[in-house]
Amino acid sequence: MMTDISPFASKLDLSNQGLTEVPEAILRCKNLRKLNLSHNQIKILPPELSQLKRLQNLDLGNNQISTLYAGNFDLPQLEVLILRNNKLKKMPHQIGALDKLKVLNLSGNQLVELPNDITRLADLEELSLANNAFSTFPVQLLKFSKMKLLWLNNNPLSDLPVTELHSKMPDLKSIYCFSPLSNHDLDPNYKLLQAKKGNCLAQFNLLALKDKPKKKMESTTPSRIISGKKHLFISYCHADIEWLNKINTALQTMAYEGLELEIWDDTRLNAGDLWKKEIESAIAKADVAILLVSNSFLASKFIREQEVPPLLKKAEESGARILPVIVGLCRFTKSTLKDYQAINKPERPMNALSIHEQEKIIYDLTNEIDKVFE
Rank of each mutant, 00 (worst) to 15 (best):
E374I: 15
L206P: 03
Y176M: 13
K276P: 09
K197H: 05
I361T: 05
S294R: 06
N155L: 06
R304I: 08
L160S: 01
S179A: 08
L193F: 04
E113W: 04
L209C: 13
T249P: 02
E24A: 15
P7Q: 12
H356C: 10
N245F: 14
P222Y: 07
L353F: 04
E24W: 08
T333V: 13
N205L: 09
S296V: 05
C177E: 00
D159S: 15
Y176S: 13
R28C: 14
W264N: 00
D4A: 14
W151N: 03
E262A: 11
L83N: 01
V372Y: 10
K338C: 05
S66F: 09
C177D: 00
A342M: 06
Q203H: 06
L32Q: 02
A133S: 09
D99G: 13
A195G: 07
R84M: 12
M1L: 11
T333F: 09
R120E: 09
E307K: 03
M350Y: 01
L149T: 11
L19M: 07
L192Q: 09
E218K: 11
L58R: 04
K246G: 02
K11E: 13
L127W: 01
K216V: 14
I355D: 10
N62I: 12
P170C: 14
Q194W: 08
C330K: 05
K216M: 14
L45F: 03
K276D: 14
E262F: 05
K100F: 12
Q17W: 06
A130C: 04
I5E: 00
Y363K: 10
M91A: 08
H184T: 12
D240W: 08
G258E: 04
L114C: 03
D13W: 06
C29L: 12
N40D: 10
L58C: 09
S174Q: 13
K173Y: 07
V112C: 10
V308A: 02
L83R: 01
N105F: 11
P161F: 11
F373A: 02
P349M: 03
Q17D: 06
L186G: 01
N40F: 07
N154L: 09
